[in-house]
């Protein structure tokens, strides 16, 4: 199953959460006295297997709460699975949210340096790509302004620019393509397609089905933490478009 070409390997991975109903000692005493369960188990991912070969672009689809983001977080290593294991080959960049790690009180320039090194770039790499990043974000004279004064569009542009210049082998993208205006969105998509064409592995979560058809070849549909469709992206999209 696993061979040299595997970029992401998910084996028998499951994740469940405990939903706590009580958040204080007083509440938990009251609930216990009333004999109500203080916890509820929520299965986010049933044991799940997924192999992604190097260079493939995979769309993770499904309704809200189907486990897409949980799976992405397991791949990113932000969460650990309850059972099984999740492994990745090569350098990984997770864009689970644009701008995580940006600090509003630092200037754009400082944030580029900070965020790039959070995403795993070495200082000399940041130095070498700094002009590319700033050029891509195209925020002009605001580079040395504190990020708190940015418009939300400018903020996202800068954050996205840093993320797509980190040169990952495996690129995780979670619902972030709703950034900026039409022109910038196209620029982002082109950049992602370029990364994909360079043979980098892409895992994308989005509800935008048209976009998914454009970016990905393979589609995986999750429902209640299980894989219900795994095949060409057209089939996956058709599955979701059919009214039930």
């Amino acid at each position: 199953m696993v061979d040299e070409n595997t970029a992401v390997s998910v084996e028998n991975a499951s994740k469940h959460f405990r939903l706590r109903h009580t958040h204080s000692l007083k509440e938990s005493l009251a609930w216990t006295a009333q004999r109500r369960a203080r916890f509820e188990d929520f299965v986010a991912l049933a044991p799940l297997d997924l192999e992604i070969p190097r260079g493939e672009s995979v769309a993770l689809l499904g309704r809200n709460g189907s486990g897409k983001s949980t799976l992405l977080k397991l791949i990113a290593g932000v969460m650990t699975p309850d059972t099984g294991r999740v492994r990745v080959r090569g350098r990984l960049a997770g864009l689970l949210e644009v701008g995580a790690g940006f600090h509003p009180d630092l200037t754009g320039r400082e944030n580029v340096h900070l965020n790039a090194s959070i995403l795993g770039m070495r200082p000399e790499q940041v130095e070498a790509r700094f002009d590319d990043i700033v050029g891509f974000a195209d925020i002009g004279p605001f580079l040395d302004t504190q990020v708190r004064f940015y418009s939300s569009g400018m903020f996202l542009r800068l954050a996205f620019a840093v993320a797509v210049h980190t040169d990952p082998d495996v690129f995780l993208v979670d619902e972030i393509l709703a950034v900026g205006d039409e022109a910038f969105r196209d620029k982002c998509l082109l950049r992602i397609e370029e990364l994909s064409a360079q043979g980098r592995t892409l895992v994308v979560v989005s509800h935008d089905l048209d976009l998914m058809e454009r970016l990905c070849l393979r589609g995986v549909v999750l429902d209640k933490g299980r894989v219900v469709v795994d095949g060409p992206v057209e089939r996956a999209v058709r599955h979701l478009r059919v009214p039930r």
Binding site: G77, R87, V88, R89
Partner: peptide, 10 residues
Amino acid sequence: AAEAGLVVQG
């Protein structure tokens, strides 16, 4: 060889 390089993240 197939296993080498596959790393558990995190």
